[in-house]
Write a protein that binds this DNA or RNA. Structure first.
Lengths: 173, 173
DNA sequence: TCCTGACTATTCAAAACTGACTATTCAGAA
DNA sequence: TTCTGAATAGTCAGTTTTGAATAGTCAGGA
């Protein structure tokens, strides 16, 4: 439901067409939301069916008509409900890709160390990049802060493991 | 591919049947991986087709036969490859559900504050619970540490926002 | 002995998602 | 003026995921 919430949140501000929505999200909110184009159209279709938004054809010059979406009163109600729901509960994040760490002892110790060093570099670069994002206005800044703080946590955790590997010598268990 | 990696990692240690695999994961690794039962069976089927594992019927007493999976040499090779791939790259996590924060200014300031307080409590409880997990052996501990450090980061970030809301008064933008 | 609720084990139809593709416009290079 | 690459706008076939159902076992109580 989070992606529906976001789409509604954007459409509340102004009418937009499909491509515009996905571009905006992928440019500005990629750190939070991964929304593929076909998924966006899928969700928009569903919301049209649910009566949360309407779709109208916009003819402009000779280009093929674009589908412009606007939010309905029911959509606004859904937005209010979803936003409260979203804010009041903490949905624990899943760190699926870090599962490899649990299987680390299947590798020779020095190879494990080398791989993690590489990962550390990528992560550090990403953190630096996130810190370089110019401050956004108002509440959007919260999302950036969020990203930065999680990346920093990830980095110091990874450093902790590398330190332990450096001390411990060969693989554990 | 991460879930396949995990399944292979478990089957390397011992042969297991489907239900056993999902139960183990959902009991011990819920903080990392969300693997629904039907998905597990789907992935296992795929891996059988790929030749990574084999399935054999195990008849035991009068109960309906269970499907026991065992890893093949190709499966072990795939495991080695996937593990290296997984460890060397940092897949940036997406914090989809925190998108509500970006839309916070759609709510009256005191309601926003109240909702976030509620969320803070849930999060603090979760962190406490994670800290109470008894130490695991070897590399599994890394995963627990990971969870704890991210929850802590989340909490202090949320506290930062609450502090700002308390100072700032009414909604921003 | 029969019933009930909890556990074991799996399947299936339907929903959700995405890689790859189609098609158009436009700015600038050749 | 024609071509080309980039941006715009959207669709579709096929894959992946899941809620709900199915079906047997077992322990304990009535």
């Amino acid at each position: 439901m989070d992606r529906e919430l976001l789409l509604l949140g954007l459409l509340r501000r102004e009418d937009m067409h499909g491509y515009q929505l996905t571009e905006f999200i992928n440019r500005n909110l990629a750190s939070c939301v991964d929304l593929k184009k076909p998924t966006a159209y899928y969700l928009l279709d569903k919301m049209v069916e649910a009566g949360w938004i309407t779709r109208s054809e916009e003819q402009e010059g000779s280009r093929p008509p674009r589908h412009v979406y606007q939010i309905t009163p029911e959509g606004e109600a859904a937005f209010q409900r979803l936003l409260r729901e979203n804010l009041s509960t903490h949905h624990p994040a899943r760190f699926t890709d870090d599962i490899g760490l649990a299987l680390l002892d299947a590798l020779p110790a020095d190879e494990a160390r080398a791989l993690l060093e590489r990962r550390r570099e990528a992560l550090a670069a990403e953190l630096e990049q996130a810190r370089a994002i110019p401050p956004h206005s108002g509440t959007w800044q919260y999302v950036i802060d969020h990203l930065v703080s999680h990346l920093a946590a990830e980095l110091s955790w990874l450093d902790g493991i590398l330190r332990r590997l450096a001390e411990g010598g060969t693989s554990g268990e």
